[in-house]
């Protein structure tokens, strides 16, 4: 179980770097979607016994993060007729190096944290920190709204991974938290994309600065 989980989290970390290194919006959306699916099945692996409630949460998470949000984003991308991130504020190579450095630092740093013995061997905490960092780099370094939304989603994935640490002690709370989070995420992203699209016919956040006042 532990090794499967580590493999999945390792995959998610790789997807983080993929999202940082790719300039095509569709590739970033795909990376985010796959990461959502990979992390969505994690609660099933963490539980010792099969539980309907957990299975339902996992199913909803996979559906929303892997399919609903990405299709929303893809539609927005088509409507606004943008394909790729052209001039990011932080270049692709620097953000890739930053993300890799952050991942290494997260793995090294997680050893120093006082974790429960059952979590010490897993990549849960480093994976969560690396995802949060990746999300932040995307939010800071990119100019297109869709990449920023993907950054937000990856950041949210990181927080979700951190929440999984508590799934044994307060299962119901974590599960309802996940569901609530998803609902809010869908609403927020839907509204953002819709508004931007209607107001500007473009998804470049640099043009949003006219709303400053």
């Amino acid at each position: 179980m532990g090794s499967t989980m580590n493999l999945l989290i390792g995959l998610a970390m790789g997807l983080n770097l993929l999202a940082l290194g790719s300039g095509r919006l569709s590739a970033i959306i795909r990376a985010t979607a796959v990461q959502g699916v990979v992390l969505g099945v994690m609660p099933l692996l963490l539980e010792y016994t099969f539980d309907w409630m957990v299975a339902l949460v996992a199913l909803v998470t996979v559906a929303v993060k892997g399919f609903v949000i990405p299709s929303l984003l893809r539609r927005a991308m088509r409507a606004a007729k943008i394909q790729r991130e052209e001039e990011p504020l932080i270049g692709f190579v620097p953000s890739l190096l930053l993300g890799a450095g952050g991942t290494i630092a997260a793995i090294a740093g997680a050893r120093m944290l006082p974790l429960l013995p059952e979590h010490a061997g897993t990549l849960l905490v480093p994976g969560s920190m690396a995802s949060i960092l990746t999300g932040l780099i995307l939010l800071i370094g990119r100019v297109k709204a869709i990449s920023q939304v993907c950054g937000y989603l990856i950041l949210e994935n990181g927080i979700y991974l951190f929440g999984l640490l508590l799934i044994h002690s307060t299962p119901l709370l974590v599960e309802s938290g996940i569901l609530l989070d998803l609902t809010v995420g869908v609403f927020v992203i839907g509204i953002i994309v819709d508004r931007i699209q209607r107001a500007f016919d473009s998804l470049d956040t640099r043009k949003l600065t006219v709303l400053r006042e």
Partner: peptide, 19 residues
């Protein structure tokens, strides 16, 4: 201009293998 990106990715893969 994308070549350095892919080569950096190769380097990172080797680096992770090293770690």
């Amino acid at each position: 201009r994308r070549v350095p990106l892919i080569l950096t990715a190769s380097f990172l893969l080797c680096l992770f293998a090293l770690l």
